[in-house]
């Protein structure tokens, strides 16, 4: 007797968000990227549509990433002092789909770089690569609020993905996105209710922004509560597929940022002989974290190590192979 395969049919799908803008669309990118649009759970091609591949963004900083472990720095050679060259290498050699530019140098405790300094770096990077850009501030709210407007204005029409809007601090980022035609990362602290509420708050400022929001559910690294991130993402996906318009956005995860601050990625083997070679271990940590998040429905992975990026892109190739029957 033939086995009948049960297939779920969902009434809705994840919103599709376009990142970047070509010349015709008011920007200067050579390509744009579409994320989202799934009408089923991750990679169940037999059940629904998975029209767009998950994409990998590689992180580029405006300052030399002193705190990165040596094996991570070594992977980039001599470009880490030059954000434009660094970005170009990520795209040309390592296959990054996008660049995530982080203005670490704007931190008052680092270089206290001004909005003008950041804009100069941004323009160099925009010129060096043709892929869409994600832009992060330094993580200090007051400073980020001061620089995000000018940065948004300087890149008007590029449809950058601007980070990050939070429940208590979303207006500056959302305003910059609204005024200068960019998209927004809406970040919530591993909390589905806040994720939904934040999307409502942003859409109350401007309804069309609903189609330009990417959710950052805040992910954790492997071993640090990734299962919480996973279940939040899974719940958001079920919500989206069942018609919850306020949770139906694509998702982004700061994989590199989370993983490379954890001891498993930088403690040398002589300190923890049972853990194995640090270089190999750190790569595995970033890759496995990213793989788990792909399975949870992550659309944009922000990563660091070129080898891990390579592995994940292979993994995405495999997962995107049609398994419908």
């Amino acid at each position: 007797m033939a086995v009948e395969i049960m297939k779920e049919k969902y009434r809705s799908q994840v919103r599709e968000v376009v990142l970047g803008a070509t010349k015709d669309e008011g920007g200067t990118r050579s390509t744009t990227i579409k994320v989202g649009g799934e009408s089923t759970l991750p990679f169940l091609h037999f059940e629904g549509a998975v029209p767009n591949r998950p994409v990998v963004a590689m992180e580029v900083w405006d300052v030399f990433p002193e705190e990165w472990p040596q094996n991570l720095k070594d992977a980039f050679g001599d470009v880490l002092n030059d954000p434009a060259a660094w970005a170009k290498k990520c795209v040309d050699e390592f296959g990054a789909d996008l660049i995530a530019l982080r203005f670490k140098g704007a931190d008052p405790d680092v270089n206290d770089a001004s909005a003008e300094d950041c804009i100069a770096v941004l323009k160099n990077v925009l010129e060096a690569v043709g892929v869409p850009l994600i832009v992060y501030g330094c993580g200090k709210l007051e400073k980020d609020n001061a620089i995000i407007g000018p940065i948004g204005e300087a890149a008007e029409g590029e449809n950058l993905l601007l980070g990050v809007a939070e429940q208590e601090n979303y207006k500056s980022v959302a305003s910059a996105a609204m005024a200068y035609k960019h998209s927004v990362i809406a970040q919530s602290p591993i909390d589905i209710n806040i994720a939904k509420q934040l999307n409502i708050l942003i859409s109350e400022m401007s309804t069309p922004l609903l189609d330009r929001i990417v959710i950052d559910p805040t992910i954790a690294a492997l071993g640090y509560g990734i299962e919480y991130s996973y279940s939040i993402m899974e719940r958001a996906r079920f919500g989206a597929l069942n018609g919850d318009r306020m949770l139906g956005m694509p998702m982004i995860g700061n994989v590199g940022h989370e993983v490379w601050s954890k001891k498993e990625t930088f403690i040398p083997v002589d300190e923890e002989p049972g853990w194995g070679d640090q270089a190999e271990r750190s790569l595995a940590w970033e890759s496995v974290t990213a793989m788990a998040l792909l399975q949870a429905g992550m659309n944009i992975l922000v990563m660091r190590h070129p080898q891990a990026v390579k592995l994940i892109k292979q993994n995405i190739d495999e997962l995107m192979q049609d398994n419908s029957y």
């Binding site: 939904k196 509420q197 409502i200 919500g239 919850d244």
Partner: peptide
């Protein structure tokens, strides 16, 4: 049946 958020009535 719906995921909670503070503005759930408006949603």
């Amino acid at each position: 049946m719906d995921i909670y958020c503070d503005s759930y009535v408006d949603v």
